[in-house]
Amino acid sequence: MAILKVPVNAQDHTLGSLHAPRVLVGYCDYQCPDCGDSYPLIKELIAKHEHSLLFVFRNFPKQEKHPMALPAALAAEAAARQSKFWEMHDIIYENQDELSIENLLVFATEIGLNIQQFAADWKSQELLTKIEKDFDGGLRSGVSETPTFFVNGHQFDEFDGSYESLSYAISM
């Protein structure tokens, strides 16, 4: 079974308790429909287990298959510079069917970002490099499809699209 090659670190986006006994790492693509379907399930899981679960989001944009995946990932990383990563992450998944450059700018306004700074950060090489590093780390951990999850460093294959299967991440 595949092992997570890049340990959770300070560059990661996390939700939940940093001291949680369970760490769920998800490699996701903002335009991937299966990731869109798992988004509310992950949210529900975190809400129910906020003290015992740490969720870590990592980028795995399939740029050829999903042309808006990278612009969306860059938008979320740019929002992180204004401490609004999760706000952007959520609004993207909640409007996944309408992803476009124009709409990403609309989202940025809606979540209250400083647009000038956002526009500059969105194009930064540094953010692109960060996303590519996530992708590279995912490949090296054996990720080929999204979403791919790891629980406490081991690939978690039980998820079949249902909340129940995702919740094994807590109980197993």
Binding site: E64, L139, E145
Partner: peptide, 13 residues
């Protein structure tokens, strides 16, 4: 298709 798609995404590396 899945395998080659993944390799296609990995070309840069």
């Amino acid at each position: 298709s899945d395998e080659l798609n993944l390799f296609n995404e990995t070309l840069k590396l």
